[in-house]
Design a protein around this nucleic acid. Structure first.
Lengths: 126, 126
DNA sequence: AATTGTGTATTAAGAAGTTAGTACACTAGG
DNA sequence: CCTAGTGTACTAACTTCTTAATACACAATT
């Protein structure tokens, strides 16, 4: 586990974001145990309370659950996962649309750019 | 002039963003005078120093210029405007690509969603 | 029983941004 | 001449949010 933090956003937000991406990309099994608050704090060199805050947010969002005093686990609710995927995609698209709204760029030109960048990125990661 | 501020980003950043969008969307003529720092502060109900900071950033970015002790004006450099337009578009596309990277969504599906949202937004504003 | 590892809660400290106050130099207009 | 309106600069205080430190209750394991 490793996250490269930016200085702009709060650490706990970035931790949540990282887990969301990991979950959606299938890096976790349903119900899989995740590191304890203290263990995560050790791995990421952050304060346990920051880890706690991130986990608390995720728990409230239904992404993870906790039984007894055992480390939390990824949700087993597939609907939550589908919703999360939709949330990530639609949020990204909404921000794109909002950002280019004042620019008045033709839709075809915009899509061309996206295809270029998309291919570029796929080549990069393969 | 009216900006609906969010609580997340610094006010001066949001002011700069607003002006960038106004400039790129053609709401300002080249060389057009913009409100003075104090006037802007009055209009937006913000502190004059916050307005000053926003204008200072814009001046350093070449978006506006100031002659003597007159209110600042929008740049007359069309290259700056083209660069700004490119910056807004490419930044938005880059953020989109980065955001959907973990989702593994097929490019066609993604483009379909974008076209939908784009049309939806165009209908909304017309 | 005692230690270790869980989750949880509360309070203190620190950092970043905004606001506030004040000041200075310059120019246009009365 | 002097008043008002520019841009600019500096410092201090205040706010808000994040992070850090500490403590507590519980369960499992040794």
């Amino acid at each position: 586990m490793k996250i490269t933090f930016n200085k702009r956003d709060p650490v706990y937000v970035q931790v949540v974001q990282h887990f969301k991406e990991q979950i959606v990309s299938g890096k976790y099994e349903l119900g899989q145990e995740i590191p304890s608050r203290r263990e995560l704090a050790n791995q990421l060199k952050i304060n346990p309370n920051t880890a706690q805050r991130a986990y608390k947010e995720m728990e409230e969002a239904g992404l993870i659950f906790t039984e007894g005093n055992n480390p939390s686990r990824i949700t087993k609710d597939e609907q939550v996962l589908r919703d999360l995927r939709t949330e990530l995609i639609e949020g990204a698209v909404d921000r794109l649309i909002a950002a280019v709204e004042p620019v008045n760029i033709p839709i075809d030109e915009l899509i061309g750019l996206i295809q270029e960048k998309y291919e570029e990125q796929r080549r990069g990661q393969v």
